[in-house]
């Protein structure tokens, strides 16, 4: 005879309320629009409650709810990307590209000042709240379209083919944009967190 374990998690209004702030943070970061993010989190909570009995307990409630939220975010990104063309990505990246070029000498090797440094044991940073504030600030500093491509790749975990198709950009453009984003992000973290003394606050 089997009865459900008493501690099987359930999708309840309380459980959803407890993760509301996390959902909002995630959606705002992806969409850069707090009103839209607010609406989306609301919709996600309603959908989750309506489908609550479909939750099988194979994942955590949070993972299950975030899967719904990710789909909603992705739909919004698809809608919005219709108004962006390939030229916008190129124009937006020009200043990032010239910043990137200054890291190299004429022979395309690192200048001494720009050589990527050893971050030691960076995993330690992941346990610190302050690190994530810097991380969010660095993400927000990326230009909007560049950030969107990066988020689709890293947060929504789409592969580059899907991103190209969704945004109607070429694969090589996609690689250029992702490289810009990673480089911008790591440079920002290097100067605001990993540089000696930068984290002393």
């Amino acid at each position: 005879m089997t009865s459900p374990a008493p501690d099987t998690p359930k999708v309840t209004p309380e459980a959803l309320a407890a993760m509301r702030n996390d959902m909002l943070r995630f959606a705002t970061l992806q969409l850069r629009d707090s009103h839209l993010a607010e609406d989306m989190v609301q919709d996600t909570m309603i959908t989750a409650l309506n489908k609550a009995e479909q939750f099988g307990g194979r994942s955590s409630v949070k993972t299950w709810v975030f899967a719904i939220l990710r789909n909603n975010v992705l739909d919004a990104i698809k809608q919005r990307s219709r108004t962006v063309n390939a030229g916008d990505y190129i124009a937006e990246g020009e200043s990032m590209d010239s910043a990137f070029d200054t890291l190299f000498k004429a022979n395309e090797h690192w200048t001494p000042a720009a050589r990527p440094t050893d971050w030691g044991d960076p995993e330690d940073a992941l346990r610190e709240q302050q690190f994530w504030k810097v991380f969010d600030a660095c993400l927000t500093r990326l230009p909007e379209n560049t950030a969107r491509v990066f988020m689709m790749r890293e947060f929504l975990e789409l592969d580059s083919n899907e991103i190209c198709e969704t945004l109607s950009i070429s694969m090589s453009n996609c690689h250029v944009i992702l490289h810009r984003a990673r480089n911008g992000l790591r440079r920002c973290l290097e100067s605001n967190w990993f540089a000696e003394g930068a984290s002393a606050c």
């Binding site: 996390d22 959902m23 943070r25 995630f26 955590s60 949070k62 993972t63 975030f66 050589r115 990527p116 440094t117 050893d118 971050w119 960076p122 995993e123 940073a125 992941l126 709240q129 994530w132 991380f135 890293e154 947060f155 990673r182 992000l185 790591r186 973290l189 290097e190």
Partner: peptide
């Protein structure tokens, strides 16, 4: 160092606190 940094970035996002359990 750059490769380690980029590997770290990817791993960090997988553990982004709002989404991680």
């Amino acid at each position: 160092n750059l490769r380690k940094q980029m590997d770290f970035l990817r791993g960090a996002i997988r553990r982004y606190p709002s989404t991680a359990d």
